[in-house]
Design a protein around this nucleic acid. Structure first.
Length: 763
DNA sequence: AAGGATTGCTTTTTT
DNA sequence: AGCAATCCTT
């Protein structure tokens, strides 16, 4: 976090001083730039190109002008982007502060800056602007705020803030929350904003749309009066700025003469328009995309942007990267077979020099617990065979699936790190602290105001909040200002009056000193004045761990003593889960398929490859496009694996408290048999459910010890050699599930004490 | 107003 | 099943 801030400071400095001297290292180009007509193989001895394959060379050494690089997974697109930057600086005489590189996550931005730094030196890396769309827009808006309907110290509302704001709006409008769920309204508004549709342009065809428009209007008013923007506003307002202030746009066009974009397939309309506005004049737009990895349409990503790009930049040069440097041929083949079934895609012939490889293991397990056990057992065995924990990842469709895995890993002493789930900055205690800090920055922030008004409890309940709201609304003011007024009317009882006075005094004190104190000192003062520590540490285990989180936040702040409050709050609002992923730590990574994009691991487990989960039920109900996206999601997961890929599905999965039968995902059917090592029950022969209907809790005191363990080799008198899929105790009986692979017998269940079954040594 | 009990809802994915 | 929001009691 501190590092990001430093970069940001450097960029700001560069922006302020356009005439800054470009620091050394940029000698005249020793080689003439190589232009390629696209047909001819690039034969170029330039040191920058020497280590690249012909397709990459072509992409990197293109002349200025719009370019689209269609890059398959593992085809070295990050490499192409960084080499392209180096090429531009060295060969095209581009000044680094004229470069804007847009990445999908802050982590990717950080990494790209590091790689550029290694190639071209720190000064070049520092002079460039690298960041996500949102972070870049946030900075532009802060700089240009005097032209905007909000001030430079605006706050960014996250999903939580949006929801609580919308909820209060729905109530205020007297709407039925069942009929008009705040989330649905927010989703409609977000969709509109992503397409740059304001409340006035919102198409009203039904009564529901009418409600959406009214809620939209009210929501915008509320954001304005809180001096806040939501995620989508960052993009939409920046487009607005550029459209209405041509002189500002002209300035940024000069400043960002050269634009590079990663993961272009996941841009939405607002982002595309932004790019077009900036790049239209100088037309130096270098874009990397893979339509097969487009997995964010639900967030407004619009794959048609690729077509729009071709239309708006007819001189566009296109390069296809097909050599894969990541996966074995087996993994790549399987993935291609899966993705090939999607309609309307550019066919690609991905290839790799890593011929052969281990077969993909397709494994059926009984339930999610045995699935987790299988994953754990296999990970332990990989670890014994020389895999580092950090070489391994487990991926799933929905965050809820991580829990069993976590518990099992703790049990089996496998170090792991979890991406997502309960994000640090989404925890209640952290949100509380942030709300205080946000109030210090901007007391008009209604969401934060309401959040901490009575946290810790200070006798200000629903009645008081109502009075404040009424006062604020009739004067069209924020809750904070409304409270000010309310205190002067003297209609409150003594206790509430005093509590409110005290509260406002505290907030105003922080607000006054917000830029005089280091943020960590401000935090300490907040903690002291609110008594937050004793409120949190209520003697429970949970209280202690919450307090520890607060201390973690404090140490983050203590580590960046120079950070400005406004910058800190912006950073916090724009961090993604993957951003926090630190690669130093040697641990197995648990993450959703969505956050796996752009990452790679020697061994990958894809769990829950079942109908209803992957593809997800919701997508099946939705549309064929949604189903195609699920397939891409599966494809993204598969192509994260370098050497080993394990796919699992279960016989029965607990869902919504009940049990649901598992059925292997339709996507599995597209993987050719010869790439698979099947460890599943032959179809049609399901074990009798009655035997397993008894609820069974892992780790509960079992009446007896098990003789057999998962993964063990066993011999059956009649069926021969097999492997234990599972062994569990039920009512004092040990039930062993064994798979007989070689002879087509498949899976059988035995009573351990009766069956002629014995363990066999591994060799 | 606070704290505990009950209901009802969730699980898609996130900058 | 687990959790948050809401209801209910004090």
């Amino acid at each position: 976090m501190a590092g990001e801030t430093l970069y940001r400071a450097a960029e700001d400095a560069a922006l302020q001083a356009f005439a800054v001297n470009f620091p050394g290292g940029n000698v005249c180009p020793p080689f003439a730039p190589c232009y390629n007509d696209g047909m001819e193989r690039v034969i170029n001895d330039h040191p920058l190109l020497r280590t690249l394959n012909p397709q990459q060379q072509e992409a990197v050494s293109l002349d200025e002008g719009p370019a689209l690089v269609l890059a398959g997974p593992g085809s070295g697109k990050t490499r192409v982007l960084t080499y392209r930057i180096a090429w531009m600086v060295e060969e095209l005489w581009v000044r680094p502060w004229n470069i804007l590189a847009v990445t999908f996550t802050n982590k990717a931005a950080r990494e790209m800056r590091e790689r550029v730094s290694l190639m071209e030196g720190r000064d070049v890396a520092r002079a460039m602007t690298i960041g996500t769309f949102h972070a870049t827009c946030a900075r532009i808006l802060r700089r240009e705020a005097e032209l905007m309907p909000f001030s430079a110290d605006y706050l960014i509302f996250d999903a939580d803030d949006q929801r609580s704001l919308m909820k209060s709006i729905v109530r205020e409008m007297g709407l039925d929350e069942k009929r008009y769920p705040p989330r649905a309204l927010l989703a409609a508004i977000s969709r509109a904003k992503n397409e740059l549709v304001g409340p006035d342009e919102y198409p009203v065809r039904t009564y529901y749309d009418e409600i959406v428009v009214r809620a939209y209007r009210r929501y915008e008013e509320a954001l304005r009066s809180s001096n806040a923007l939501d995620f989508d506003d960052l993009l939409m307002e920046t487009v607005d700025l550029f459209r209405h202030a041509p002189e500002v746009l002209a300035r940024y066009r000069e400043r960002y003469r050269h634009i590079l974009v990663d993961e272009f397939q996941d841009t939405n309309v607002a982002q595309y328009v932004l790019l077009r506005l900036l790049a239209q004049e100088h037309r130096s737009l270098f874009v990397v995309a893979d339509e097969d990895q487009s997995i964010y349409s639900w967030r407004g990503a619009d794959y048609r942007n690729i077509r729009r790009l071709r239309r708006d930049f007819p001189e566009l040069r296109e390069v296809l990267l097909e050599e894969n440097y990541r996966s074995t041929q087996i993994i790549l083949d399987a993935a291609q077979r899966v993705i090939a079934r999607n309609p309307d895609r550019t066919p690609k012939r991905l290839f790799t020099r890593k011929q052969g490889g281990s077969p993909i293991v397709l494994r059926e397990l009984f339930d999610e617990q045995s699935e987790a056990d299988f994953v754990a057992t296999t990970i332990l065995s990989l670890h014994r065979r020389g895999y580092r924990w950090g070489d391994i990842a487990v991926m799933y469709r929905a965050n809820a699936q991580s829990r069993v895995l976590e518990e099992t890993f703790v049990h089996r002493s496998i170090p792991y790190r979890l991406v997502g789930a309960t994000r640090f900055y989404a925890r209640r205690e952290i949100k509380d602290i942030l709300a205080y800090l946000r109030l210090a920055q901007n007391p008009r922030d209604d969401v934060s105001f309401l959040r901490v008004l009575n946290t810790p409890p200070r006798g200000l309940g629903a009645r008081t909040v109502e009075k404040i709201a009424a006062r604020a609304q009739e004067a069209f003011l924020s809750r904070y200002e409304g409270t000010r007024l309310l205190l002067h009317t003297g209609i409150l009882r003594g206790r509430q009056q005093r509590a409110l006075e005290q509260f406002l005094e505290m907030v105003e004190g922080w607000h006054r000193d917000r830029d005089r104190l280091p943020v960590v000192a401000l935090l300490d003062r907040i903690l002291a004045e609110t008594g937050y520590e004793s409120y949190l540490r209520d003697g429970t285990q949970e209280g202690e761990s919450r307090w520890e989180n607060v201390l973690t936040l404090r140490s983050v702040l203590a580590d960046s003593p120079e950070i400005k409050l406004a910058d800190f709050l912006t950073e916090v609002a724009l961090v993604a889960d993957v951003d926090a992923l630190d690669d130093e730590q040697d641990a197995v990574t648990l993450l959703t398929l969505h956050s796996a994009k752009g990452l790679e691991y020697r061994a990958v487990f894809l769990v829950g490859v079942e109908e209803g989960l992957l593809p997800h039920r919701r997508s099946l109900e939705e549309s064929p496009e949604a189903l195609a996206e699920e397939r891409r999601l599966f494809y993204v997961g598969m192509t994260r694996a370098k050497e080993r890929l394990y796919l699992t599905y279960v016989f029965r999965r607990s869902w919504y408290g009940g049990d649901q039968p598992g059925e292997p995902s339709r996507f599995l059917a597209d993987i050719p048999d010869d790439l698979l090592q099947r460890q599943e029950r032959p179809t049609g022969k399901l074990p009798k459910p009655s035997r397993f209907s008894m609820p069974w809790k892992q780790g509960a005191a079992a009446p007896k010890e098990r003789r057999f363990h998962e993964g063990e080799r066993v011999r059956h008198r009649r069926f021969g050699l097999g492997r234990v899929l599972e062994s569990r105790l039920e009512d004092g009986y040990e039930i062993v599930t064994v798979i007989f692979n070689d002879n087509g017998i498949g899976v059988k269940h035995f009573l351990a004490e009766k069956a002629p079954l014995e363990p066999v040594s591994e060799f």
